[in-house]
Every structure is written in C-alpha cells, then in structure tokens.
Simulated scan of single mutants.
Amino acid sequence: MSDWSATTILKFLEAYHNEPCLWNPKDAEDKDRQKVNDTWTRLSIIMNKSVKELKTKKEILMATFRRHLKKKKDSIRSGAGSDDVYTPVWFAYDLMESF
C-alpha cells in the first residue's frame, strides 16, 4: 500500500463523508450499485489510489473507530463520573463520529 499520512487519511474521510451513498443506508442511492461503484471510482481519482486500497483503508479505519466507540460506550455504561468517561484522542475519531 502507498503512503497514508494523517493528512491523507483526513482528506479521504472528508471526501468519503461527502458521499452519503457509501455510508448512509437511508440515502436514496445506497442500493444503486452503479452509483456506489461510480462514487468509489471518483474517490479513487481524487485520492490517486485504487478502489481496492480505499476500501481496505476504510475497513481498517472503521475497525479502529469501532474499538474507540466501544470503549467510550462501555465507560459511560459503567456509571462512571463524567471525569471517568473515556474520551478518544485518536485523530480521526471526531470526524468519523460525525457521520
């Protein structure tokens, strides 16, 4: 895989966020396979990376995001005080939580 700096990852997440057909199951185009494929192709051109590489990176980012989200939810559920609630410090967490 090619280089993925934090800046590149954030650029990818911003571009991905702007394409709700990829991440929002309520989006009208979510089920349109051709639109979804066209969107991945467009992101591939924007990012200058293969569709396969982008999809792999998305899965890796989602796995990390889910791990932080679970930790946060578990700390809230434990009845901990607000000071004890886990606050993710991972650079992409806030952006990913926004969609």
Score class of each variant (00 low, 15 high):
T8Y: 05
L13A: 04
L61D: 06
A63K: 15
S44C: 03
V51C: 10
I45V: 11
T56G: 07
L13F: 07
M62Y: 06
L61S: 11
L10V: 01
K52Q: 14
M96E: 03
K71A: 09
D74E: 12
Q34M: 14
R42K: 15
A80D: 09
W90Y: 05
E97K: 11
K55P: 04
K11C: 00
T7A: 11
V36W: 07
D84I: 03
V89S: 15
R77A: 08
L69D: 13
E97L: 11
R77Y: 05
T7H: 08
I60Y: 05
K72R: 15
T7F: 05
V51I: 15
S50V: 07
S82R: 10
R66W: 03
K31D: 14
L10Q: 10
D74A: 06
V51Y: 09
I60C: 06
D94Q: 08
W40N: 10
N24F: 03
N18V: 00
S98T: 06
T39Q: 05
E97G: 01
R77I: 03
G81V: 06
E53Y: 09
I46T: 03
F65E: 01
A63N: 12
A28K: 12
M1D: 04
L69S: 04
N24E: 12
A92N: 02
I45L: 09
K35D: 10
M1I: 11
P20Q: 12
A63G: 10
V51D: 14
W4V: 03
D74Q: 11
A92I: 00
K49S: 12
V85N: 10
C21W: 10
F91M: 01
P20N: 04
I60N: 09
R66N: 08
I60P: 05
L43T: 01
N24V: 06
P88A: 12
Y93G: 03
A6N: 13
E29Y: 05
R42I: 04
T64H: 07
T8L: 14
K49W: 04
L61V: 02
L69A: 07
T7V: 12
L61F: 13
T64D: 10
W4P: 04
W40R: 07
S50H: 08
K26Y: 02
G79H: 11
A6R: 13
K31T: 11
